[in-house]
Design a protein around this nucleic acid. Sequence first.
DNA 1: AAAGTTAGCGAACAAGTGTACGCTCAATTT
DNA 2: AAATTGAGCGTACACTTGTTCGCTAACTTT
Lengths: 217, 217
Amino acid sequence: MTGIRAKQKEKTRRALIDAAMNQLSAEHGYASLSLREVAREAGIAPTSFYRHFQNMEELGLTLVDESGLALRQLLRQSRQQIARGGSIIRSSVDTFMQFVAGNTAIFRLLLQERSGTSREFRLAVARELSHFKAELVDYLVDEQKYHRQLAELQADAIVRIVFSAGADSLDSNPQEREDLTEATVQQVRLVARGAAAVQHDQAAVAQVKQANHRAED
Amino acid sequence: MTGIRAKQKEKTRRALIDAAMNQLSAEHGYASLSLREVAREAGIAPTSFYRHFQNMEELGLTLVDESGLALRQLLRQSRQQIARGGSIIRSSVDTFMQFVAGNTAIFRLLLQERSGTSREFRLAVARELSHFKAELVDYLVDEQKYHRQLAELQADAIVRIVFSAGADSLDSNPQEREDLTEATVQQVRLVARGAAAVQHDQAAVAQVKQANHRAED
DNA sequence: AAAGTTAGCGAACAAGTGTACGCTCAATTT
DNA sequence: AAATTGAGCGTACACTTGTTCGCTAACTTT
């Protein structure tokens, strides 16, 4: 049971995936990806494609899965950076922007398929975003002592802002990218500031209510 | 100078634009839009297409322009309605969400081309977004007396949040859509609240500086 | 009324697409 | 050693795509 054959098959499967990734670019999105071109770059005949995937859609979903995995690795990395101390906001935004800069094609795929043509794709990307949000909520509740509801609202807003900024950074030069990162950090701080104010108000209201209640006794 | 001819031309031009809009859907994005199909639905020969547009790209850019304009007019209109009382934030977000629900195809086009395959498209959508932002900045500076820099930061964050929520609403049922709208209103208020707090702090700092300065005299 | 302009058409072309079919031949199993 | 499997290939087919090129016929200008 050497598995020479299975190994070879896995190898060309990877070649197909890599070829598809390579062909994803600013000018050439998933929608305009052709089976024949992918096969050509992978070094096999067009018809052999079907030995590995049933459809181009199946290949596409594989791509989204793989990109999602890469993104989750980013999140893990970002969490470690937070543990080492420093501003959670800045280090998160920095890490995110680094990922976008270093994995343009992948991030483009995620963005495109987020509002893309296939519902399954869209849901897959939405799932990835919700992971990002969930981690942020946990942090806000556990470390920053926010009420869960307020933390959710806040995390949602932050994820929206950061991903949107990431999208803009795709067409930016390094200088613009730095400015964009700085602006994003400040915007996230704006949200955090607003949430802090709301939480403070709520505490005050609760105190008043409690005082009124005591007065009624 | 009856202009019968010019009128007819304008009419088929509109027919082409409408046909393109009709063919845009959740499953069938701009990328997979075909000149021949558009021409067929518009009721003209494929070759006549070129009497009106040089490219499919030119048609697409027209679509982006038209939809952005429509959305902006709607929002301007809703902002004027605050004279009748009510929250400007709520009415703006409501209007926006209504537009998205009623013009799904158009909004999908904007979203898709925002991270799409053509740089020119991306810039066109970015231009639309910057229009939204600019109008919001004006409002924040003129009516709400924010410092320009802070207003810019705030407007940018708001536009990002609202558009991102609009994207999510595309795959939502009416109930989810209502919840999403409510959450978005609260998130925008969070940002506004944060901005107000920052502005207040800056004023305090300025006051202190002024006091120090007076003391030095 | 004559001349000029032009929106729209039909035929044709060169590419490119996905996919069905049967074959080969090396890896694997019996 | 013989039989089976299956990854990959080549041919072929039926489409669809964008675009070029004259042509007609209706509108517009002179």
